[in-house]
Amino acid sequence: MNESNIKKPNAVASFFRNLSGQTIWMVFAVLVITISLMEPKFISSSNILNVLRQVSIVGLISLGMTVVLIGGNFDLSTGAILTLAAVVSVNIGPENGPLTALAIIIPLLLGVFVGLLNGLLVGLLKANSIIVTVGTQFMVAGATLIYTGGQHVWVWSPTQFYEAISGGYLMGIPNPIFIFLILTVITQIILKRTSFGRYVYALGNNDDASRLMGIKTNLIRMSTYVFSGFTAAAAGILLASRVKNLDPTIGLGYEFQALTAVVLGGTKTSGGEGRIYNTLAGVLTLGIISNSMTLLNISYNLQLLIRGLILLTAVAIDAKRNQSVAR
């Protein structure tokens, strides 16, 4: 009875399985061509740089999200971490050299700290990581609101260096893009070239087997969350440097945009599989979809609906792939 189900050649399943490799880059290419034909403004160099600058913030979060997901967990606290980091960074008031340094270091430390907390809770309680990180998300968001009294925070005259984080250029390319791409390469090296990266994949594949091979699974899991907290905080600093006048709920929903990008990039929601360069493709794809929707004057409400549709499609593909590989 079961046998016949397995043996039936499943064209749908194999199509979805093939989609897991480099296909997201093809989807990306097709989208770029289609949108360029529909709206020539899209292909202008200023618009391309604009898209890249916009995606760098979600992109940074996506890097950490990819690492956590490969390890078999979720991190939904990153939007809140981003907000906290941004608010603290601006509130420190980077108006001279030392304060600028603090406005970068302290938010990063806070991100690392929340990541540590996430890792401890998920590891020690062996609790569902979605619930735990939604919990820390609320806590961090609440703490941020208490810290600001619910009011906007701003900085009048930040140092040139602080401005340059998001506003500067290197070889004609905006700094945020550089920061995002450099961190992408670093993440790739961590995942593919270090023993830590290998352990992350092992953890996501099989927690018990990993432990039996001497891998300190709790430590590895915690480190993935620390990394995610770090990239979310870095994204927060980037945002703060650009906006400089912050609503303390500004980061709301960023974690879901990142999650969409990562799942779109083929990282498995059940862990153990994923590629950082495909996450990059997911981030870019999502970025140009948002950008073109704006260029085409699609209302925000409809954009939100479309984004939801994209996330559901990505999840459906992920689930379909699970079934076609499961034996």
Binding site: Y201, N206, D208, A209, L212, G272, V325
Partner: peptide
């Protein structure tokens, strides 16, 4: 399967 294999990793890994 439960305690030994990392199913989605290579023979080498």
């Amino acid at each position: 399967k439960e305690e030994g294999l990392l199913m989605r990793m290579s023979v080498l890994e």
